[in-house]
């Protein structure tokens, strides 16, 4: 048993793929995919004949709820249960583990979004493909950004509870990002809190972009910037934090 494998130095798609497959197996096994599908598609029964921009907003809200259900526990379950530590001893890096789990979650969420398209487009006989692509791109950046925030939360707090806490956060963040709510607080606390809330990707930002795409007007530059930067920034922060984390810290404590 000499000849141990040479030290892997670069990102391995094989390892990330293996992590992705195992994540998909877990989501299927725990019926979480089924739950996410129900939570994303069932609300459409209550959506009536409303303008396309409203239906796109609904698509975003329902999809992000589905993503939150699917992404709940991504990385966190492996960190707490120990599989991450064992994968680590088999040369899997933090980035590979996180990328693998994120890929599965995003792929399945994309499926959820596609499954909702008939509901989104049912009252429109002709929709500009360019508009659909631009809206899809906005939705995609929002989903990746939100998942990256979820992954960061998973590396910070123990258990799937951190991901479940993301659902109320969907409501709280837009409120905090406004100007009024934090007004009574001292500026030293209010400003950083508001800035942080404004840097988080929320469905409201995507809705602003849809409105601009469909109805014109002044481009929501801040929303576009946050949506575009969020996936990169938050995923980098999450990956860096996971890399700093001791793989066995949560199982040994």
């Amino acid at each position: 048993m000499s000849g141990a494998a040479a030290a892997p130095t670069s990102f391995s798609f094989a390892r990330a793929g293996a992590m992705a497959v195992v994540r998909a197996r877990r989501l299927l096994r725990t019926r979480r995919l089924l739950l996410a599908a129900v939570m994303a598609i069932l609300p459409w029964l209550a959506v009536g004949d409303v303008p396309l921009v409203v239906r796109l907003g609904a698509l975003t809200q329902f999809t992000i709820v589905g993503l939150t259900v699917l992404g709940a526990g991504a990385i966190a379950e492996d960190l707490d249960g120990g599989p991450y530590a064992i994968a680590f001893t088999h040369s899997c890096s933090a980035l590979e583990a996180m990328a693998g789990e994120a890929a599965t979650t995003l792929l399945l969420t994309t499926g959820l979004a596609v499954a909702q398209l008939p509901f989104v487009l049912r009252h429109d006989t002709l929709v500009d493909i360019g508009i659909i692509l631009m809206c899809s791109a906005s939705l995609a950046t929002l989903l990746v950004g939100w998942l990256a925030v979820m992954l960061l939360a998973a590396t910070v707090a123990r258990g799937v509870g951190n991901a479940i806490a993301m659902i109320p956060l969907l409501t709280v963040v837009p409120v905090l990002a406004g100007t009024d709510v934090l007004e009574p607080l001292p500026a030293s606390l209010a400003v950083p809190l508001r800035t942080l809330a404004q840097l988080l990707p929320t469905p409201q930002l995507a809705s602003e972009v849809y409105r601009w795409i469909l109805q014109g007007g002044e481009a929501p530059r801040a929303a576009i910037a946050v949506l575009l930067l969020s996936p990169v920034v938050w995923f980098t922060v999450a990956a860096a934090h996971l890399r700093r984390l001791e793989p066995a810290a949560r199982i040994a404590a």
Partner: peptide, 10 residues
């Protein structure tokens, strides 16, 4: 490890 740290569903 001393206890099971593997994916239980596999």
């Amino acid at each position: 490890p001393e206890r099971s740290l593997y994916h239980r569903f596999l």
